[in-house]
Design a protein around this nucleic acid. Sequence first.
RNA 1: GCCCCCAUCGUCUAGAGGCCUAGGACACCUCCCUUUCACGGAGGCGGCAGGGGUUCGAAUCCCCUUGGGGGUACCA
Length: 474
Amino acid sequence: MSVRVRIAPSPTGNLHMGTARTAVFNWLFARRHGGQFLLRIEDTDRERSRQAFTDSILTGLRWLGLDWDEEMVFQSRRNRDHREAIAALLATGQAYRCYATEAELNAMREAQQAARQAPRYDNRHRRLSHEQIAAFQKEGRPAVVRFRIDDTEEILWQDMVRGPMRWRGADLGGDMVIARRAPAHEIGDPLYNLAVVVDDIAMGITHVIRGEDHIANTAKQLLLYNALGAPQPSFAHTPLILNKEGRKLSKRDGVTSIDDFQALGYTAAAIANYMCLLGWSPPVELGERFDLAAAAAVFGFDRVNKAGGRFDWDKLKWLNSQVLHAMDGATLRDALLPRWQAAGLNTDQPPAWQEKLAALLGPSLVVLQDGVEQARPFLGRPEPDDASRVQLQVEGCQTALRHVLRHRPQAFEPSAAKALLTAAARAAGVRKGVVMKGVRAALLGRLHGPDLLLSWELLHGVGEDDRRLRAALQ
RNA sequence: GCCCCCAUCGUCUAGAGGCCUAGGACACCUCCCUUUCACGGAGGCGGCAGGGGUUCGAAUCCCCUUGGGGGUACCA
């Protein structure tokens, strides 16, 4: 059987970490088995759905490298199918109209809670007489459509992550609403569980891979598959991504959308890698650092964990730094350039020079955005910080700088420059460290940064070294 | 409340009854490299939630307790 899986986000927010991770597992599974990975936008909640969110989801998935097969499906355009399915269920008596009012239902739930019972619909309109129905309709009462769920029903499935699962119909909360309230002769807006099943059937989905927060939905949906006479797909309920406090990661946790991570300077490679590591333990041969294609070659739910995993910034940062450190100058320069420009830095230098700068900065970057502050002394004309000012006043520092300026060679040569620093220290009668810190302070305006000689060489390359050295002299 | 799920270092995890004196990664600490900051290298700290069983033998199997999470919509 060929594998067909899907990711079905609702466009009510930007692409979320949790959604992206579910997408990763789906993608991995599809690629592992040479199947299809499909995309369905569940935009039936018109109040909350927005085009901008759909765009965020699409660009985010592409950015991560999660390419989908076939044309994406918009759930809102499949409304007719959903209604037909509801009509069919109505026709076979597996669904019925419930005329209970909201007030009536609320009163019922309050009574249940007062009696310390689980809130549930008591199936009161399941067997209405013709007279009662006629009376409600004469009243003009609208109705929802409910799907019958017998309390005695036993729902069993083999979960690819959790093994054998069992759910009782009695724990599903009574007959479930599958169509919103509407005039009694119509069928209202189809609801989530029904739409999902109808669409998954239509799309030929063979494996439903989603977060464990959907387990109860699975029990309901399995019943719907039977009622609609469709074969049941396999299910895999993946562990959730938890926040620092151990709760399900939500928008309230601050940075949770893929767009946010991208803006901060995390790479798609690191994020994809990290999402794999959260909940799945790769076989040892794969190691911890890998790309999606490598993971896809060995992915399986047998190594997916059951317990939720806490999102760990430190690990993601480490992974990201590893990705950045492995980049060559040209690649890194291309990634940094837009950020330099956005920060208003001067980027008129030749690309080759910028690549050298990127390569110099590379090892100290954790996120791409770090490359902005760190490049500032090279691309701009930074004000020296306090520590630098102090350094330039250190006994003998000025003398040494003057020596350096007086004896500087025309063409920059690292070993010559190094020798010059030694000579300057001797001439000024100070330790070499004083000279090195002094030159650094003069050139960069800071005391910390990448290798001094390489930094110097770069500034020399754009004719900035003399000017800065002179400016540092009183 | 009710239903379901889960439980190994601070975090992510390896572990399928003897290979476990519980392994790895991140974080943290120390040292080396480096007259800066990083990178890199070497080492260290640190854990089977508790209690009962089963077994010659349990991190691994069973039960209970505790703890944590998810779900309980006319949202998706």
